[in-house]
Write a protein that binds this DNA or RNA. Structure first.
Length: 436
RNA sequence: GCGGGAGUAGCUCAGGUGGUUAGAGCGCCAGAUUGUGGAUCUGGAUGUCGUGGGUUCGAGUCCCAUCUCUCGCCCCA
């Protein structure tokens, strides 16, 4: 046998039952929170036309094209590819169903996404993303800019993922500031400033010089802006004090001030305005978010999102603004598993194992199991007449708490053993309940 | 896609300068006076030493290629 085939494929995580159980609980919780705010679920197909996926970003090398759908035409270019996020499919979905959707569209999507990047810690090629977005035909009220991180924070709290800090910024501040400095390549500057965490101020300065030939005095201003962090209006004051101005900058600062005030009352903790946050994605145009583990600042972003003015414009002749946020479920989950912060769940959902007792017939065991199951108790049968030693060991290994012994002789009582306490006693399958 | 590191039993790894039937721990299986687990003890199975080629009387150990994993870059949840 080729053992290579048994090895994991890098970037495509798989969990044992005891962790998958927890992942499913997480998904349940996320759904509940999303729905508690009135967001509706959709699921979009795994595949999108390549040109739809590539419209918004130039990430052509990151998508997985589908071979099957174009292989019959030699030297044809791939037509379809797996989606690499949920935002672009959402835009396509909304554009395709304009007449059937009620605006503002508020939807969530918990699905896998695929990216062809090189795996690293926290970076996968197949992963769950939990997206929540609002799309409207008119301007979206700024209140949503605060609701997004509020929902996200509530989710992370309920999942007990540990301390997380959500950094908030506004792209209008960055673009307006750079424009005020007379810099036209705002997106390029943003891309480089986004690396501040990673390569430091000197690294950013070097790239701005080498790649974009930004003059030193402006680099100083850019870095000064990026260093501003805080949770109250002083952030706005410090930005203004840098002496740069443009209408866009002022608008961005006003928006950020509003969002900060709202967050103060809605969330109250775990967030900070950080004017260095940019988000790589080019389509963001206003508020942007980025959440990180407090304990592992070098671990990649675990949630991200923001406001975009026009995501469907390339698909239809309308401008539909939106705002959304994405929770990197796999990224968060994998880290907590790796760090041992997540205790594995049970290896089986079973509440009761009905043993096959020598001397007892299979039919009785089967009837007992059915009775328990009909009463909502998750029950499995041991289908092989092996030594009780084996059967008990099986239950213990799978984390099944109760082992049920049907009567060995007619008229004798049923017995159930609690493996946690080791105690065993008579019980009636018609009214026995597992204790919680 | 580019650069660095690694690849020996299911898992974690040991195997000075090439030399007879390749090891440990954990796990697994079976027992410990005839039907009750998690402890302990005893015994047992398991590897074409990632793959292909080369050097050599002889290679897990040297050389080349290749694949995979891993770290960094790009990019991002």
């Amino acid at each position: 046998m080729d053992k290579q085939k048994l090895k994991p494929i890098s970037g495509f995580p798989e969990w044992l039952p005891e962790f998958r159980l927890i992942e499913q609980r997480w998904i349940d919780t996320i759904r509940q929170v999303f729905e508690s705010y009135g967001y509706a679920s959709i699921e979009t197909r795994a595949v999108e036309p390549v040109d739809v996926l590539l419209k918004q970003g130039d990430t052509d090398k990151e998508i997985y094209a589908i071979g099957r759908l174009f292989e019959d035409r030699p030297d044809a270019k791939p037509e379809y590819a797996l989606h690499y996020d949920m935002t672009v499919p959402l835009a396509r979905f909304v554009a395709a169903h304009l007449n059937d959707l009620v605006f503002p569209v508020k939807r969530y999507q918990i699905q896998k996404a695929w990216r062809g990047e090189r795996p690293q810690e926290g970076r996968f090629r197949e992963f769950y993303q939990c997206d929540i977005d609002v799309i409207d035909r008119r301007e979206i009220p700024l209140h949503f800019d605060a609701e997004m991180p509020a929902i996200m924070t509530e989710v992370l709290d309920r999942l007990q993922v540990g301390a997380v800090v959500t950094k908030v910024n506004n792209r209008k501040i960055l673009e307006g500031f750079y424009r005020g400095l007379g810099i036209e390549q705002a997106n390029e500057v943003i891309r480089i400033v986004d690396k501040l965490d990673k390569i430091g101020a000197s690294g950013v300065a070097r790239l701005l010089t080498d790649e974009l030939a930004v003059p030193a005095d402006r680099i100083a201003k850019i870095l000064a802006l990026a260093e501003i962090k805080g949770r109250d209006d002083s952030v706005i004051g410090r930005a203004k004090a840098l002496g740069v101005s443009s209408p866009l900058l002022d608008q961005g600062l006003d928006e950020l001030a509003f969002v900060l005030r709202e967050l103060g009352t809605q969330v109250g903790r775990g967030y900070v305005a950080d004017l260095s946050v940019a988000r790589g994605l080019a389509y963001y145009t206003g508020t942007v978010y980025e959440a990180k583990f407090v304990d592992w600042p070098d671990y990649p972003t675990i949630c991200g999102g923001g406001r975009y003015d026009n995501l469907v414009g390339s698909l239809i002749n309308q401008r539909l603004p939106g705002i959304g946020i994405s929770i990197g479920l796999t990224r968060i989950f994998a880290k907590l598993v790796k760090e041992g912060r997540l205790k594995p769940g049970r290896k089986a959902p079973t509440d009761v194992l009905v043993a096959l007792v020598p001397g007892n017939d299979y039919a009785t065991a089967k009837a007992t199991a059915r009775t328990l199951r009909e009463r909502g108790i998750r029950t499995e049968q041991y289908h092989e007449e092996r030594k009780l030693d084996q059967q008990l060991r099986y239950a213990a290994a799978k984390g099944i708490r109760y082992v049920w012994f049907p009567p060995a002789t007619a008229g004798a009582p049923h017995e159930v053993k609690d493996l946690d306490s080791g105690k065993q006693g008579p019980a009636d399958p018609r009214d026995w309940r597992p204790s919680l």
